[in-house]
Simulated scan of single mutants.
Amino acid sequence: MPNFYPTHWACLSLTTLMLTGCATTELLDSGKRHPSTHTTTQKTLLVTDNVVAFGKPATALANVPADSVVIVGEKNSYVLTSGGYRFTELLGSLDPNYIQVTKALDFYSPNNDGHFKGSLNIAYAKLKSSFSQADYDRMLRNKGEECSTASDVRMNAQRFCFSVPLQGGVYPAVNNLALIQSKFKPLSHPYQVSIYTTTNQTVTTPPRGSNAAAKLVMLPFALAFDVITLPIQLVADI
């Protein structure tokens, strides 16, 4: 058995205390929150607006297609520069009693530069016995896809789904908004249009409750413009 002199015991005791101290410090540190850096994708809602009517520009607008459609909002105007013609043709040719909107008008603006994109998604369902040959021709012409559910089959009904890609720009409210609101009845089924954007952010322990809001960017015309309302504003269920 080795002989331990007092100096050896002192060294061993000192070493034990140092190790114990390190372990204790590590345990204490483990309970502390250290800043962590990570990348997150944040979705920011830029605007929500109530739809007043659907219309067409009363006069031709510069750099805007002639067949453009305007979603008239209380706050802004949403000019559909792509997909607008099919949008109005589809809603204007279908019986509103059988139209169901399956997705809200929720548009995405990748760069928040006044431009947005999205889609109009609707379903059209009724009893098979009610479909005429003209109805089926309309389904084909508007690129409807058969999407009958099990419930539809049990009721001997048939369902077609439509998805219309849309693109456009955000502009100030139309000049004749007050006239439209006073002259025409509100849409029988009020709904909203919204625009959002996303950003990738590298953050270090973001503060609790932080919510960075972004301001909607618009594409202003030199002059305010008027719209002529479309018959589809009378559609019952859109």
Rank of each mutant, 00 (worst) to 15 (best):
F162T: 02
S119W: 01
A66W: 00
A125N: 07
L46C: 10
K32G: 05
K128Q: 13
S151R: 04
T59G: 01
T41H: 09
M139P: 02
K32A: 10
N121V: 10
Y85G: 05
P110C: 06
N111E: 15
G118H: 05
R138I: 04
L61Y: 00
V70Y: 10
G168M: 13
H38E: 14
T39R: 13
L61I: 06
V52E: 07
H38D: 10
K126L: 03
Y98H: 03
A60K: 11
C147S: 15
N142Q: 15
Q133M: 05
R159V: 04
R141E: 14
V72H: 04
F107L: 15
V164S: 10
H115R: 14
G83R: 07
F116H: 06
V164D: 05
S132T: 15
T59F: 08
V69M: 11
E145I: 15
Y108H: 15
T39E: 10
F116T: 06
D113W: 08
K117Q: 13
C161V: 05
A134L: 13
G84M: 02
G114C: 06
L91P: 08
E146R: 13
G31L: 12
G118W: 00
N156V: 05
R86E: 12
I71M: 06
I99C: 04
T81D: 10
D49C: 03
D137K: 12
G169A: 10
S148T: 13
G84Q: 02
A66E: 12
A58I: 01
S130T: 03
Y136K: 14
D95I: 01
G144R: 07
